[in-house]
């Protein structure tokens, strides 16, 4: 279980500010979902957390600034599932999941028996036995997505970042993948930060939503607090009806002109 404190995070690409003074505290085992229109800065926040872009401000995990950690130690704390993972066509599923053990293997060292044991247990937990020896190019889109999540889980990092990790999946596989992450969060206290386009799903799985717009966090709170028709119309420029289910689910329904 790890807590995460982001303080005044700024990301700039040349003269363009992608993230401006983003401050957020995520409790251990919580699920924070970043929403917002394209280009709002969601991915840049996640990429700073994964150590992929330069940033100003501080990102503190368990009391230590991530910038002070070695890249391997950071990878042991934060696992990252990108929107478009690069899947080497000829790599087998097991070999790919084994890459998740990289943070624990020395520069010139090899994976140990323990690393393979972790891979085997992740394969068993995600029911990927049938695919273990198959090449990644032979898997369907949904299977590939599960394998990418499996690699992130083999990393055994307490914080999981997902950048639109399920956007390319059909509704069934989306549910399957998100259920899996939610289950791990409940069982192992995984802290999750995800960027999502589907607002209904975002509200359904996360316990807090932060709406970003032009690099700024403009609204934050529970689904019913953030997902208001007037808020969404202001920042997304959409016409929606928001429906509140009796069980608390907030459903965002787009409307025709």
């Amino acid at each position: 279980m790890s807590s995460l404190a982001i303080d005044r995070l700024c990301v700039e690409y040349g003269d363009t500010a992608a993230v401006v003074d983003f401050t957020e505290i995520v409790a251990p085992g919580a699920w924070l979902c970043l929403i917002g229109p394209n280009g709002a800065g969601k991915s840049s926040v996640l990429r700073s957390l994964a150590g992929l872009v330069e940033y100003r401000g501080s990102i503190v995990v368990d009391g230590t600034d991530l910038a002070m950690r070695s890249s391997r130690r950071r990878a042991g704390l934060v696992a990252y599932v990108p929107q478009h993972p690069q899947l080497p066509a000829e790599m087998t599923t097991a070999e790919y999941i084994l890459l998740g053990r990289s943070p624990y293997v020395g520069y010139f060292a090899r994976e140990t028996r323990h690393d393979w044991a972790v891979v085997d247990s992740v394969i068993a937990r995600l029911k990927l036995e049938r695919f273990a020896r198959r090449r990644l190019s032979e898997l369907s889109g949904g299977e590939q997505q599960r394998v990418v999540i499996a690699r992130a889980l083999a990393q055994e990092a307490p914080i999981l970042l997902m950048d639109e990790a399920t956007s390319a999946l059909d509704i069934g596989h989306q549910q399957q993948a998100l259920d899996l992450v939610d289950q791990l969060r409940r069982e192992q206290g995984l802290t999750v930060i995800s960027a999502m386009h589907d607002l209904t799903l975002a509200g359904l799985y996360s316990d807090r939503l932060t709406l970003m717009h032009q690099g700024h966090a403009v609204a934050s709170g529970t689904a019913s607090e953030v997902l208001r028709p007037e808020t969404l119309s202001e920042f997304y420029g959409v016409r929606v009806t928001v429906h509140h289910d009796p069980d608390g689910t907030v459903v965002v329904i787009p409307r025709r002109a």
């Binding site: 994964a50 150590g51 990878a75 696992a79 990252y80 998740g100």
Partner: peptide
């Protein structure tokens, strides 16, 4: 083989 970004995220120098 997984690309620069993902390799960095996996802690590779």
């Amino acid at each position: 083989r997984v690309g620069d970004d993902e390799a960095v995220a996996l802690g590779a120098p």
